[in-house]
């Protein structure tokens, strides 16, 4: 750490202390005001430390990053132990350990099946040893193979069959205005969002978009001629969709930013009410 860094760190530490004391004093009528003031100041400090990344990598960002990673890794490990091992496994395998961890023992004639994940888990841990590390490949293969097989059926259903059936839509009419010829169509012409013309145009866009989009994802045929043109239309439709999705998500991110700025200016600095 060079001298400049030390000075900056000292100034930030002093500001932190001032903020802590000021908030503790302002909360003096409340219970645990010192702890609450510390938590509030720490939240503001960590928010600013993460924002400091916008300038460049610096000791404050490093501190926030390492704190975040360390706390979250430890939290998820504890969560996994207490919810999976203590919450689900021990109550089915050992009455004595259930008593030790103060969780109700769940007796069942099928409890022996829970030894299977125990054995698979131990086999996974074998990768920590040099001689028996190969044993960990078996549970890995089971996990990947089983879930991939289950997902195969799920995807085939949701991305294939349901996709096909969702494309079966009327192109010349909608439910409220069945097709009765051009005369009736023109007399019933309605440009409202739920109107006949808009619905028909939307259905055509969906149908052509699906067909051209699928053509773009053909890999075993060269994209030339009519096929190539349809593929171009497909990528245009994809890009327009991505553009709309981008704008929509960015709006959501801005609302998150507004939330953090509100916290800084309202809860911490108390500049806005």
């Amino acid at each position: 750490m060079n001298r400049t860094t030390l000075i900056v760190v000292a100034i930030v530490a002093a500001l932190f202390a001032v903020s802590w004391i000021a908030h503790a004093v302002s909360m003096s009528g409340q219970k645990d005001n010192v702890v609450d003031a510390f938590m509030l100041t720490m939240a503001a400090f960590l928010t600013l430390a993460i924002f400091s990344f916008l300038y460049r990598d610096n000791p404050f960002y490093k501190f926030a990053e390492h704190l975040f990673v360390g706390v979250s890794a430890a939290f998820w490990m504890c969560q996994g132990f207490w919810s999976t091992i203590v919450g689900n496994l021990i109550p089915r395998l050992s009455e004595g350990l259930s008593g030790f961890f103060q969780v109700p023992y769940q007796a069942s004639s099928w409890n022996f099946a829970y030894w299977i994940p125990v054995i698979l888990g131990l086999m996974l841990l074998m990768r920590l040893t040099k001689d028996y590390g190969w044993l960990s490949r078996w549970p890995l293969a089971l996990i990947v193979g089983t879930t991939a097989g289950l997902n195969f059926v799920r995807y085939l259903r949701s991305d294939f069959i349901v996709q096909v059936s969702a494309t079966f839509m009327p192109l010349l009419s909608n439910e409220s205005h069945p097709w009765e010829g051009f005369g009736a169509f023109l007399s019933n012409l309605n440009l409202a969002a739920t109107g006949q013309l808009v619905t028909i145009v939307a259905n055509w866009v969906i149908f052509l978009g699906v067909i051209c989009g699928i053509i773009y994802f053909f890999f075993s045929k060269e994209h030339t001629g009519i096929f190539g043109r349809a593929s171009r239309v497909g990528i245009w439709i994809l890009m327009i969709t991505f553009g709309a999705g981008f704008g929509y998500t960015v709006m959501g991110r801005i609302s998150l930013l507004v939330g953090r700025i509100t916290f800084l200016f309202k809860d911490w600095l108390q500049i806005i009410s």
Binding site: T167, F168, I211, I214, F218, K221
Partner: peptide
């Protein structure tokens, strides 16, 4: 996968015609 996609295109076109002509027996297959 490409053949499956070709099947999707063909089935979507047939299904579309079926839906517009009211052939529910075909659309119900899906």
């Amino acid at each position: 996968q490409d053949w499956a996609k070709a099947a999707v295109v063909i089935l979507a076109i047939i299904g579309l015609i079926a839906a517009n002509l009211g052939w529910d027996s075909f659309t119900n297959l899906f």
